[in-house]
Simulated assay, not measured.
Amino acid sequence: MGQTLAFDIYGTLIDTQRIAATLEGWIGELAPVLARAWREKQLEYTFRRGLMGAYADFDACTEQALRYCCQMQGVTLSAGQEAELLERYRQLPAFTDAAPALDGLRADGHRLFAFSNGTAETVGGLLRHAGLEDRFEDIVSVDEIGCFKPDPRVYQHFLQRAGSKPQQTSLISGNPFDVIGAQAVGMRTVWLDRTGRGLFDPWGDKPTATIRGLKELAGILG
């Protein structure tokens, strides 16, 4: 019997660090440094806004994080470069193992959902550009309830939207905070540790399973 699978998007199916290729032509070897800092600050802003109860959508967090990180790194972008960079962030590529893994899981009878901090519009465009959109039954966005992962309400909202019970639902994510958040409401979890470093938050909460690549999912889920 198939499971309900909630796939995180940024950093799990979509490679956020590929934005460094655009940056490299403008700032050279500083590009990967800025790309990593941007991603970290983007997530920090979602955490802070969640704690403050001051929701602004993921696109706004992304834009504000970029401006902060450029200032922090002493990088000056023109208005045109900033606009181009933000547009490229909406067109990031998928990891190479994403499409074949999703196809195999659908064929095995699992229900596939995109589950993201991003807005449904932005995530839909991102998946369409990456050639993944038609693999999913639906997109579930935190924007629908105005809070971010790992707020428990986000995962409960997903379960309600998908019409699934926690024990029949698996979250697949490359983000440990996301995995821990899903486990807190009783969902099963698969942590995608692409680096193989095993660097998971030492909270005593272990993922249901850990994988190095998406092709391993079929063997774990059955």
Rank of each mutant, 00 (worst) to 15 (best):
C147A: 12
G204M: 05
L86V: 02
Y55F: 15
P166I: 07
L105C: 13
M187E: 07
R153Q: 13
A218N: 10
R36E: 01
N175Y: 02
N175K: 03
R135K: 07
R88F: 07
L132Y: 01
H110W: 10
Y55K: 14
Q91V: 00
A54F: 12
G146M: 14
L77A: 03
P166A: 13
L5S: 12
E133W: 11
Q160F: 13
A65W: 01
M1A: 15
L92M: 04
M1V: 14
L102R: 06
D103N: 08
L105F: 12
T122E: 02
Q168T: 11
D57M: 09
G25R: 08
G118M: 10
G109M: 11
G74M: 08
E24R: 15
Y89K: 03
I172L: 10
F95S: 01
L30S: 13
K165M: 14
A114K: 04
F47A: 06
A94P: 04
V179H: 03
E40N: 10
G163P: 11
I14D: 01
V142K: 10
W203P: 03
D15P: 05
G28C: 05
F136E: 03
G50Q: 15
L34R: 04
A209V: 05
L43C: 00
L159Q: 13
S173I: 06
T195G: 04
G146Q: 15
I19A: 01
K149A: 09
L221Q: 12
L92I: 02
A130I: 02
E24H: 15
T62W: 00
L23C: 11
A65T: 00
C70H: 11
K206G: 08
L192S: 06
G104D: 11
I27D: 06
R106K: 15
L192R: 05
R153C: 09
V185L: 06
L105Y: 13
F136G: 08
A184G: 05
Y89G: 02
R67Y: 09
L217Y: 09
K149H: 02
L43A: 03
R111F: 13
D57V: 06
G124F: 13
G213L: 10
I172A: 08
Q3Y: 15
P100Q: 09
F158L: 14
L192G: 06
